[in-house]
Each structure stands twice: as structure tokens, then as C-alpha cells.
Design a protein around this nucleic acid. Structure first.
Length: 576
RNA sequence: GGACCUGUGGUGCAGCUCGGAGUGCACGCCGGCCUGUCAAGCCGGAGGUCGCGGGUUCAAAUCCCGUCAGGUCCGCCA
């Protein structure tokens, strides 16, 4: 049926007979005797020349037979890879006709996303989507190769799993054989993979679908895909090595030999320098701790436990009105406010303007300039508050002020390590797990579990790429006594722990190896490597922000007769 | 649960501030012309519930209220 793909034709000798199959991309009709038909397959577009023919329309599926020849001198098209050749004396067989399509498939024409999603099968014909999904397939393949090479074995785990009430909201699936009972779809294969370690698989991986019933965002869908891995008898460094190797293979597959280096900073450094646990370092301008400089300041707004400073990344855009907006923005982000200091001139000749200029001692200003390195034309932004609030507020402002300056080609990969084990307290005053309750505390901090839980560091780590959290992992608790102490710190009593995770705790009684692992989001990775800012662009059939599939119109109502065997009745109010 | 942006022939947009006949542009579609084009060109034509509902007004795409849909973000995402 087919002897070549469009992209192959440029390399064939003149006169080679070929048969290609694909879609009519465009028809250029020059009267009775000359018609150009551009035929598209997934490899590209090739021009076919034929005589009288007026029944070909865009998106018809055709089979074309003819001979490949270089184009006549002066008619080459340097804009397409096959622009030096054409198929002559082409005989066309229409395999399938097509109605006019609802939107242009030309990548240069922006089409509203809802329209694209309604006819996703057409949208996926576009070169951009073909490129993106094929890139994603390459990433999957590189990941598999890297994991296999490192001795990992792929094991599938259930989609119909058991509810685990900790963590993200879950999807539930009604059971027909046990009416009134429900499975849950896994937020991640976390517990299943830990059990594989107990089972002695030593090194497990899976490209796993995970499901979380949380609100959707540009970087979040209900269902997403992770490289999920776990290994026994290893430490944090080993996990980092496994993942670095995989990442190197991925980047090599996508960009050729490009070098991958993954930096490493502690959570505390990330928060202190970037006000975020997923810093985007590409445009510099870290936050600077100037608490010491202002310890005795007369400026009351600056007397706080912590003062964070930022030299604005783009000061020429800071009009007076814009500065006022920044103050408002800081308040909206939860800080009490923001102070700015504008610097003019260098050396001894500098002067400053600021709402608090008169209250600042010259020595304080000098120290501020010295520590921040600010000079002529710079604007220093200051947020004073509790440490975490000060740095996260200014960190968010840093992003908003500087993100547009980041190099889009750069890949800034970063391990963030030494996360706290708990992140704050819930309404009952109990600590909340920062990662999940099976995360191993830092050995040095074990004794703080009972006395000062919030300062316990954990053996967990995130991988960050250009300010996006790609994934996270940890060394797990494999000892029952430590697990009991962590549950106790979390306020989970033995009975509750048993009813929720009994099967895991049981398993750990029969010889659990030390183990740990990692999982990273392939959707986000693929989007970043494809240069997309939205993961829907690398997913074949994504859902809208309200969780609807515009093509199938799912989710749909089911009638009472369908639901009855499941033991489910739907409230009438919810049916309207 | 909340904030903001968007909704106008099949597609993309302008028109909306400051109300006056569905007005305009580009693409696509249909017909005609055209022997080297390539986002072909030229001529002609068809195609509209201005998201939906209500209000104000002599008069609403335009102003007001509500609502629906799509997006971005906050909350949420162990």
C-alpha cells in the first residue's frame, strides 16, 4: 500500500517510483493542466504534481503513486525539508473523503483550546501535537532503558486499590460484587512498591498512572504519569544517582548529547535564598538575609524576626505606581507589607529614595548596599516578618518580577534535600506530614520527635526543574519502633494506624529491608522539555479545569437501573 | 469555596470606554478564471440566537444583574 514516508523522498534517486499515503494538506489548482497537492503523513509534507483533478479537498485520505524528481530549478521550497523534490505524474486514489474541518491544522494559527479539545482527534493531527506526543514517547523509552540498565524490574500494581485517607482526595470505584463498598484509585503506588521491597524485588520501577481528585491546574490533571521507583539496601545518594542517570538518558534522547548536572541545596537554603522549595534559579537575584543589618533600626516596619532583601531583577520597569502595586501584592501574599529603597549614583556619591529614607541610618544603608551588592539604578525590596512568611512572600515577588528574564533554553535541575519531616500543625495542634507518614526522619534528629517535632529533618528530597517540582522521594521507615513514634507524633493511634495501614505494618513484621525511592512526573518533564507551559499539550486526551472531557462529555450521569446493582442511589437534587 | 481574564458566521480577531440597522478585517467554505505554485493568485457568492436568561432604555453585541462554558491563579495537591 505504501513504499515510503514523505520525509524519505528527499533522499531517493531521481525517477524512483514511490507510493505514499496520507492526508491532503493543501491543494493549489492552476486550471485544467496543473494541480499541486501537498500530502502529509506523520513524517512531513511532500508536493505532488498532477494534471486535471478538481475533486481533492483538504484532509481527504489519499494514496499517491508517482516518481520522485528534483524540482525544476528555481521552484524549490527551502521552508520544508522535502522542498527540493516532488512526486511527478502522480496518480491519486481517494481512500476516504473528509468534510471541511472545523479549524485550521496550521500550527501558525492559534485556535481556542476548547475547540481543539472538542475535536482532539483533529488537533492531534497538527504537527505540534504529533511532535509533543512523540517526544513524550521518547522520554518514556529512555526512562525504561535507563532503569532496566540499572537493574530495575518493572512491576505493575493495581489501579483498584484500597482507600488511604491520608493525603490527597481519592477517586472511588463502587464494587458490584460487594455492593456498598468501594475501591480507591491510587494517588501513587507508594505502599504497593514498599511491599515489593519487603517481597525482595530489590529494585522496582513502573511508569505508573496516578489519580488524585484535586482541582486542576495548568500543571495538574486528575490522572498523571510518574516514573515510580523504589530500591532496597540503598541510601539517599544511591537514589539520586539512579535518577540522575535516568535524567541524563532522557535529555540525551531529546536533545542529543547535552550534559546534565543536577545541583543540590537544602530545603532551608532554598527557602532562604529563593523563598520557595522549588526555586527557579535561572535568573539569579537570590534573596539576601539582612536581618542583622537592621537589628537596631528605627524603622518599625523593619523590626521583625527576619528581614529578607531582594535586588529587583528588572528595576527600569519599576515606576512609582508599580512600586505601590508591589506593596499591595506583598500584602495579598500575606506579609504586612513591603519597603523599597531606590539607589542612585555610585561610591560616595550615592543617594537613596524610599518612604523610610529619613529613618534609615547611613551606616545601615551602607551595609544594605554592601550585602545586597545594589548599585546605581537598583531597587532593593525588603519584606520583614516571621522567617517563612518573609521569604515566601519575597520569593513569590522575585518570581513575578524576574521570571520573564529566565533563559528558556536552560535546564536548571536541582535536588532540594533535608525537608522538614512535618510542615506545621493542623487544627488540633498535631504535626502534618510534609511528604508521607512513612518518611524516615534524619537519624540525628530522632530524639526531637517527641520534644520538638517541627525541627525534625527528614530523609526526603525533591527534584526541581526550572522552578517546577518534578518529583519527590524519601528513604522510608523500615523499623516498626520508629514508625510507631512517627505515627504517635502525627497523632495517629495504634488502632487507627492498624485500620489504615495494617497490611503494611504486618508486612514490616516479617523482615523489611531498608529501602527508599522516588517518583517524578513525566507530564511535567515532557511539557518542560517540549517547551510547553501547560501539560495538556503533551497529553493526548486531557480534561478541562472543571474535569470534563470535551470530546466524550464525560463524566456522565448513569440511570438508576445501572446504579442499583452497585448499591448506589443518586440524590434527586444532584440529578437536575 | 474565592479572585481575575475570555465568549461576536466554520476559525482567528476588531467593534463594547462614549448605546443608534449584524458593521468590518483575515482565514476557511461554495462557484468561476488561471500551466510552477507552495499559508498560490484574481473575480463573485453563501454563511450570525453577538454564550444563555433577566433588567435599564424609544433603542443593547455595547450599560447593569444573574448564569453557563473555557482559561490563569489562590485555597487544595500526604
Amino acid at each position: 500500500m505504501r513504499t515510503a514516508y514523505a520525509a524519505d523522498l528527499a533522499t531517493l534517486p531521481a525517477g524512483t517510483p514511490v507510493t505514499i499515503c496520507g492526508w491532503v494538506n493543501r491543494v493549489r489548482q492552476h486550471g485544467e493542466h496543473l494541480v499541486f497537492v501537498d500530502v502529509r503523513d506523520h513524517t512531513g509534507i511532500v508536493q505532488c504534481v498532477l494534471g486535471k483533478r478538481d475533486d481533492l479537498r483538504p484532509e481527504y485520505v489519499v494514496q499517491i503513486s508517482g516518481e520522485v524528481f528534483p524540482r525544476p530549478e528555481g521552484t524549490e521550497n527551502p521552508q520544508i525539508p522535502t522542498g527540493s523534490v516532488e512526486v511527478r505524474d502522480a496518480a491519486v486514489t481517494i481512500l476516504s473523503e473528509a468534510e471541511p474541518i472545523p479549524f485550521s491544522l496550521d500550527d501558525r494559527i492559534e485556535v481556542e483550546e476548547a475547540t481543539r479539545l472538542r475535536h482532539r482527534y483533529l488537533d492531534l493531527r497538527r504537527e505540534r501535537m504529533q511532535r509533543n506526543l512523540r517526544l513524550r514517547a521518547k522520554i518514556n523509552s529512555a526512562i525504561r532503558a535507563a532503569m532496566e540498565e540499572q537493574g530495575f524490574v518493572e512491576v505493575e500494581t493495581p489501579l483498584l486499590w484500597t482507600p488511604t485517607p491520608e493525603g490527597a482526595r481519592e477517586f472511588y470505584v463502587p464494587s458490584r460484587t460487594q455492593p456498598g463498598s468501594f475501591y480507591s484509585l491510587p494517588q501513587s503506588p507508594q505502599i504497593a512498591k514498599q511491599l515489593l521491597m519487603v517481597a525482595g524485588f530489590d529494585r522496582y520501577y513502573q511508569i505508573a498512572r496516578c489519580l488524585r481528585d484535586e482541582d486542576l491546574r495548568s500543571d495538574r490533571q486528575f490522572e498523571f504519569t510518574q516514573l515510580d521507583m523504589e530500591a532496597s539496601f540503598i541510601g539517599q545518594e544511591d537514589v539520586h544517582r539512579f535518577i540522575s542517570n535516568a535524567m541524563e538518558k532522557v535529555v540525551a534522547a531529546v536533545f542529543g548529547g547535552r550534559k546534565v548536572e543536577i545541583g543540590k541545596i537544602t530545603w532551608r537554603e532554598a527557602m532562604g535564598s529563593y523563598g520557595s522549595d522549588k526555586p527557579d534559579r535561572r535568573f539569579g537575584h537570590p534573596l539576601i538575609d539582612v536581618t542583622g543589618v537592621l537589628a537596631k533600626t528605627a524603622v518599625r516596619a523593619l523590626s521583625a524576626p527576619h528581614v529578607a532583601a531582594l535586588v529587583d531583577p528588572d528595576p527600569s520597569s519599576l515606576s512609582r505606581a508599580r512600586l505601590d502595586q508591589l506593596v499591595e501584592r506583598a500584602r495579598a501574599l500575606g506579609a504586612k507589607g513591603l519597603l523599597w529603597i531606590k539607589v542612585t549614583g555610585e561610591g560616595d556619591g550615592y543617594s537613596i529614595s524610599s518612604p523610610v529614607a529619613k529613618l534609615l541610618e547611613p551606616a545601615e544603608v551602607e551595609q544594605l548596599l554592601k550585602q545586597t551588592g545594589a548599585g546605581d539604578g537598583d531597587v532593593i525590596l525588603l519584606v520583614a516578618d516571621e522567617w517563612e512568611r518573609a521569604v515566601t512572600t519575597l520569593g513569590q515577588i522575585r518570581l513575578e518580577r524576574g521570571r520573564h528574564l529566565a533563559d528558556r533554553e536552560e535546564l536548571d535541575l536541582l535536588w532540594v534535600v533535608d525537608f522538614p519531616l512535618f510542615e506545621g500543625l493542623d487544627e488540633q495542634g498535631k504535626p502534618i506530614s510534609a511528604h508521607h507518614p512513612f518518611t524516615m526522619p534524619n537519624e540525628e534528629d530522632l530524639d526531637l520527635l517527641e520534644t520538638d517535632p517541627l525541627s525534625v529533618r527528614s530523609q526526603s528530597y525533591d527534584l526541581v526543574l526550572n522552578g517546577w517540582e518534578l518529583g519527590s522521594g524519601s528513604i522510608r521507615i523500615h523499623r516498626a519502633d520508629i514508625q510507631r513514634r512517627v505515627f504517635s507524633a502525627l497523632g495517629i493511634d495504634e488502632e487507627t494506624a492498624d485500620s489504615r495501614f495494617g497490611f503494611l505494618l504486618d508486612a514490616f513484621r516479617y523482615g523489611a529491608p531498608p529501602h527508599g525511592g522516588f517518583a517524578f512526573g513525566i507530564d511535567r518533564l515532557a511539557a518542560l522539555l517540549a517547551g510547553e507551559t501547560n501539560i495538556r499539550e503533551i497529553i493526548a486526551y486531557p480534561k478541562t479545569q472543571s474535569g470534563v472531557d470535551l470530546m466524550t462529555r464525560a463524566p456522565k450521569r448513569l440511570d438508576a437501573a445501572t446504579l442499583a446493582p452497585l448499591g448506589i442511589t443518586v440524590q434527586p437534587a444532584r440529578q437536575g
